[in-house]
């Protein structure tokens, strides 16, 4: 069978589908001071998954927490990678209490594209990954 670390090189999704892969990628991102991008990506996925079993109040609290931590501060690594229009859309949703499971989807896609084009290829060439393999 293919060892997991070779699968990680196939696509960002194969990497993010493996606990050890996530751990190593996060260590790399931490070095580059952009681990927040990965946390945000997972927070968006988690937010979308919560809809079925959780009440509106919890969703609102969570949406506010994600907004405050990653988007509100324009100097934050995540905020800097998200388009202004996407940010104002999320801000509007939070302010008007329009909480929707898909409200972070566009922002997540933008961060994902950034990782696919930038940090993920760098990770595959990094000492951290090469030493692991």
């Amino acid at each position: 069978p293919t060892p997991p670390y070779l699968k990680w090189a196939e696509s960002l999704h194969s990497l993010l589908d493996d606990q050890d892969g996530i751990h190593l990628f996060r260590t790399f991102l931490k070095q580059e001071e952009c681990a927040d991008m990965l946390d945000f990506w997972f927070a968006c996925s988690g937010f979308r998954k919560q809809e079925a079993n959780d009440g509106n109040e919890k969703m609102l609290k969570l949406a506010k927490a994600i907004y405050k931590k990653y988007i509100l501060d324009n100097n934050g690594i995540v905020s800097r990678q998200i388009k202004p229009a996407t940010k104002s859309f999320i801000k509007d949703c939070v302010m008007k209490l329009h909480i929707d499971p898909a409200m972070f989807d566009q922002a997540q896609t933008e961060i994902q594209t950034m990782m696919e084009e930038n940090t993920y290829p760098l990770f595959l060439k990094s000492d951290i990954y090469l030493e692991y393999t």
Binding site: D17, Q19, F42, S45, G46, I66
Partner: peptide, 20 residues
């Protein structure tokens, strides 16, 4: 603030793949 962070952390963990 703590509970907000906990909520966020719980949300992030819920999206991670389970140990194989």
């Amino acid at each position: 603030i703590d509970s907000e962070d906990d909520l966020l952390q719980e949300c992030i963990s819920s999206a991670m793949p389970k140990k194989k």
